[in-house]
Simulated scan of single mutants.
Amino acid sequence: MPKAARKSPRPLLRRKRRSSPPCLDAGCAHAFITTLFTTLSALRDSLVRIYSPSGLNEHKFAVLTALAAQSPAPSLATQLARAAGITRASMTDLLDDLERRHWIARSRDRSDRRVIQVHLTTLGQEVVDTTNAHFKAICHDLLGEASPQELNRLARLCGNIGQASRSICTQIPPFQPPGAQCPVPQR
């Protein structure tokens, strides 16, 4: 007769969740962040060289993507400025350029004539679709050898670095090189 499963009086051991980052060698962390920064700069420069001749930049594409995600509903310039990470004043010039290219259309809201609505045109949707497909192919070429597990781990690491980067300037005072004078407050 099989023995009945015996319950252990001890609770199962669970892995402790790390509450602080693991200890890293300062030189190793420095080398990694330096390499990451250099790599991201090279990637950004390459993408600018690829897409700028067609009139696209990261802000324009962010606006087009935001409009595509919301389509067919229109958007407001202030919402699009937030999506692109630019000021409302810069958004006007950006929208002027997108409208000249016939990628967007602007119209007045019928219920409040002061409000300008921004719509993605059919041509604008084609630009979003073809640019997304082109960019996915570039990403595949860059990362085609990496396994999904490696990419997920790298994405989590980058997310953690991004989150820490957003808060680091509130925790660490501005760097003062040796011999630098602190600005004298004006009265």
Rank of each mutant, 00 (worst) to 15 (best):
Q125V: 03
R106M: 02
Q125T: 06
C23D: 15
K7W: 14
L43F: 15
S75W: 11
P177G: 08
A77K: 03
P74V: 01
I86P: 03
K3W: 13
K60T: 14
K3L: 12
K7H: 13
A180Y: 11
R108K: 14
L56T: 02
G159E: 09
Q181W: 07
T35C: 03
S8H: 04
T38Y: 11
Q79N: 12
R113N: 01
D45P: 13
S165Q: 07
I33K: 06
L142V: 07
D93C: 03
G144F: 06
R156E: 00
S46K: 09
F175H: 09
I161K: 01
T131I: 00
D112F: 09
K7Q: 15
K3F: 12
Q117C: 05
C139R: 04
A42M: 11
T34C: 04
E150S: 13
E99M: 11
P9S: 12
R49C: 02
G159I: 12
L67I: 04
A83W: 02
S111Q: 12
S46F: 01
P9K: 14
D96K: 13
P173T: 01
C28T: 07
S90L: 06
L36T: 06
T122Y: 09
A68D: 06
A62T: 13
D97W: 05
T92I: 05
L154A: 03
N132M: 03
T39S: 09
S52E: 10
